[in-house]
Amino acid sequence: MDSGAIRRRLGTGLALLIASGLLAVAAPGEAQAAGTSCPGRKVRTVPFSTGSVQVYRSGGTVCAFTLAKNPGRKRTMAVSVQARGHRPVPYSGKHKRKTLTVSVYAGHRCVKVTGRVGGGSGASGWILC
């Protein structure tokens, strides 16, 4: 193989690598398993005795996480988002301040969010209808 062919193959491989990286960054919200923050704008806060659930919306995607009122020691925290007509998408784990995010594609459906920090919990009922 001559050096021109090697350069063309390296250039093609580099272009494919860059394109796949850009696609991964531009992936829609429902493709992101769990992250540390939600895209879009904040649309609701559901308060309860030990914390709150923060709800964000970007297009048809609804994202939520639970935030502790008094961060400190690790304790069990949970968040769940359910689009009407579908099963809830839950997350729970031990955290100090906030849970990882849960995102669902709801389109124009109503959603229900729930959250729990330690012994306190809260639920929204059907919102964003």
Rank of each mutant, 00 (worst) to 15 (best):
C63P: 00
A106W: 02
G60W: 03
L14G: 06
G4R: 15
P39Y: 03
V81L: 03
A27T: 08
T76K: 10
S49N: 08
G118K: 04
G118D: 02
P88L: 07
G72M: 12
V113S: 03
A15Y: 07
R75N: 01
P71Y: 00
K98D: 02
H95Q: 13
R8F: 00
H86Y: 15
R75Y: 06
V111L: 14
R73Y: 11
A5W: 09
H86R: 15
K74L: 13
V46R: 01
K112N: 08
V43C: 02
A83K: 01
G93M: 11
L14F: 14
V111A: 11
H86S: 15
V46E: 11
V43L: 04
R87M: 15
A24E: 07
S80D: 13
G13N: 13
R9Q: 10
L23W: 03
S20Q: 08
A5D: 11
S80G: 10
G85A: 07
R87F: 14
A64Y: 02
V81M: 00
A24W: 09
G72C: 15
Q82R: 14
G115H: 04
G29E: 01
C38P: 03
L67P: 04
S121H: 13
A83Q: 02
R7V: 10
I6Q: 11
T101V: 13
G13S: 12
A15M: 14
K112F: 05
A123Y: 06
R9L: 13
G40D: 05
V89A: 14
F48D: 03
T101W: 11
P47A: 02
V117S: 04
Q54Y: 12
C38K: 05
H108C: 07
A33E: 13
T36K: 15
T45Q: 12
T76A: 09
T66Y: 04
G119R: 14
V79Q: 02
G107E: 11
Q32A: 14
K94V: 12
H95K: 14
V104E: 04
A27H: 08
R57W: 06
V43P: 02
L100P: 10
V53S: 00
T12C: 07
A64M: 09
L17M: 14
L22P: 01
S58P: 03
G4F: 12
V53L: 07
A83C: 10
R75W: 06
A68H: 00
I6D: 09
R84W: 00
T66A: 11
V79N: 06
G13V: 11
S92D: 13
P90F: 07
P28C: 05
C38N: 03
G85T: 10
V79F: 03
G120M: 07
G72S: 10
V111P: 12
G4M: 15
Y91D: 04
G11Q: 10
G93R: 09
H86P: 05
H95F: 14
A123G: 15
P71K: 02
L16I: 10
P39S: 10
A78G: 01
R8P: 00
T45C: 06
K98I: 05
G107D: 12
A83D: 01
E30F: 12
P71M: 00
T36Y: 13
V25P: 01
H86I: 08
Q54A: 13
A78R: 05
R44K: 15
S52A: 14
L67Y: 09
C110I: 09
A15S: 14
P71F: 00
P88W: 06
A5Y: 08
